[in-house]
Design a protein around this nucleic acid. Structure first.
Lengths: 148, 148
DNA sequence: TATTGAACGATAACTTTTATTGTCTATACT
DNA sequence: AGTATAGACAATAAAAGTTATCGTTCAATA
């Protein structure tokens, strides 16, 4: 039993999900990847370990990992393109439960002075802040009676 | 000639794009929409004004508007899902030209104290900051010789 | 007003993601 | 340990979102 093996089993126990061979390999392979891999990239990489694995399994388990908090996704609103109709300077509040996006004025967030230059010589144009949290409606559902 | 009509013609002149009936109606319809409409939603709405319009036209012109700066998109990385492999607390630098995403530590941005509660009773879990700008490579391309 | 390159509509194709279905396996319970 | 069963798996079809192709029509400008 390796170290990551134990870690993964503990993670699964914590989040109440079953330990399977596919999930374990998936987790370990992803741990070894840098950057921000897409499901396809993960699939290509994990296929080297389990050639018979299905793309659907990769998708389902990435979802499961994200839902259960084992993993995080880069952006909560990557489904389809959305355009900005609010012309005022603003940022976004994104509900982590229902994914709803609402605007919040830049003032209400009082951000610090923006750097013009960042590590790696990155030239700053603007900041775009997503405040991740739970919207009022989803808070209500959480407190309220259980759904049928 | 209406007010928005004139506005739109000026915008097109500024950005060097042709004025067509479809683009004009598209622009006006979108101005009248709230929130963060998707291309499909825009299509449904604009179809009421121009029943014969094609979905492809909507997509092409939303792209054009975004590229030319007439319109902004909510998120620069909505293509496919991406998962986070960096476990440290960090944010992102997103190149507006090549869309590359790189990590930047939370310290390097020195964000203000996070509010726990925001307008509308939104309960904050965390902030996720995208710094939009131009990466070093794209700066080089810009300065350097013109491409073939 | 005639010319011409760009934009349009129709639709096929492509990419990404989800759903379905029959088989298999991990887990719980003897 | 042996078995029942809920859940996970692979294969694949289908849905959703987006882009490309191509013949026709229109806007810019001479």
């Amino acid at each position: 039993m390796t170290a990551t093996d134990t870690t993964f089993r503990r993670l699964c126990a914590q989040h109440g999900i079953a330990v399977t061979h596919q999930r374990q390999v998936l987790y370990e392979v992803m741990q070894g990847m840098d950057g921000h891999p897409s499901p396809e990239e993960v699939y290509a990489r994990v296929k080297r370990e389990i050639p018979a694995i299905s793309l659907a399994t990769v998708y389902k388990n990435i979802h499961l990992f994200v839902e259960s908090g084992v993993l995080r996704e880069v952006s909560l609103h990557h489904g389809s393109q959305r355009v900005e109709m609010n012309e005022a300077e603003h940022h976004h509040m994104v509900c982590s439960r229902c994914k709803a996006i609402s605007d919040i004025s830049a003032d209400a967030l009082n951000l610090p002075e923006q750097r013009r230059q960042l590590p790696g010589g990155f030239l700053v144009e603007r900041y775009s802040v997503d405040v991740i949290g739970i919207c009022l409606e989803c808070q209500g559902l959480e407190r309220g009676a259980s759904r049928v």
